[in-house]
């Protein structure tokens, strides 16, 4: 029989290791955060939100065109992705007992695991090649492909949480199933669904890889959906790997803005999710 002192010692050693591991996890993450805040705030100025990048060698400039481009492409991809994701989820909850529904669920899970650069390649072959040019539209489609499986699965989960008694109550009033589904089930689950949508938007707002060969990026203002368009993450990428100190500064400022947007969306989603669970 092992002595109790040895066992206690082991217990303390193991606890210390776990604590140490946690610290080792938090330190680099804290460092990333620290640098983004420090470098970001020292480089951020009003110019960042109003100007487009200056040519190589000149200091100053901003990423206003990237902010606009990201907003346009995110909106467009939401317009494509949300109907597919949400109505697909409706199918899974209202009619989803069979094999087809399980196949759809499985494909959504598989799609969610596809590296985002692959969705970029697919959008490239589907849109860039036939349209003979990089375009914001292709970028939005690539982002939508990422968004769809996320929205589908979170919406399905939220719809499943709506008590079945509400569906029965509505049907017993002689309301057709389609109205029941839209006006009772979806309406009741709205907060939860919005939570999932916000998280999905946060996810695609930071995506860079799928835009590399779809939207491509643009040094100038661009508003046409059929032309290359700037995006914030793309600009952070190209400025970070460029050999100019000034561009690095802009990249840090961009990173700060992106992180703030991301955290706002995430925290907003969390609060929304909490109030959905309470009601």
């Amino acid at each position: 029989m092992r002595s109790i002192t040895l066992r206690n010692w082991q217990n303390h050693a193991a606890t210390a290791m776990m604590l140490l591991g946690t610290v080792a996890v938090l330190v680099p993450l804290a460092l990333v955060f620290f640098h983004i805040l420090r470098m970001g705030f020292s480089s951020l100025s009003l110019d960042f939100f109003t100007n487009i990048p200056k040519p190589t060698g000149e200091s100053g400039g901003g990423m206003a065109n990237g902010l606009l481009g990201s907003a346009i492409m995110i909106t467009l991809s939401a317009c494509i992705g949300l109907p597919i994701g949400i109505l697909g989820a409706v199918y899974l909850t209202e009619f989803g007992g069979g094999k087809l529904a399980n196949t759809i669920r499985f494909s959504a899970d598989v799609l969610a695991g596809v590296p985002s650069i692959i969705t970029g390649m697919v959008a490239y072959t589907l849109l860039v090649v036939p349209m003979k040019g990089f375009s914001a539209l292709a970028g939005a489609v690539a982002l939508a492909l990422i968004m769809i499986p996320i929205v589908l699965r979170t919406t399905e989960e939220q719809l499943k949480m709506v008590p079945g008694t509400l569906r029965e109550a509505s049907l017993a009033l002689g309301v057709p199933l389609w109205r029941t589904s839209l006006q009772v089930m979806l309406k009741t689950a709205t907060k939860g669904i919005v939570t999932g949508v916000l998280l999905a938007i946060a996810r695609i707002a930071g995506e860079t890889a799928p835009l590399l060969f779809t939207a491509l990026g643009n040094q100038f203002w661009s508003r046409k959906l059929t032309e290359p368009m700037a995006a914030l993450p793309l600009q952070i990428f190209s400025f970070a790997i460029a050999p100019y100190e000034d561009w690095h500064k802009l990249a840090w400022a961009g990173a700060l803005v992106l992180v703030v947007v991301m955290f706002t969306l995430n925290i907003g989603a969390r609060l929304m999710g909490r109030s959905a669970r309470q009601s």
């Binding site: 990333v32 983004i36 930071g206 860079t208 993450p233 992106l258 991301m262």
Partner: peptide, 13 residues
């Protein structure tokens, strides 16, 4: 939730 490109920025700089 932090995007890949931001880790990359920190990594490279």
């Amino acid at each position: 939730a932090i995007p890949s490109v931001i880790y990359g920025l920190w990594g490279v700089l």
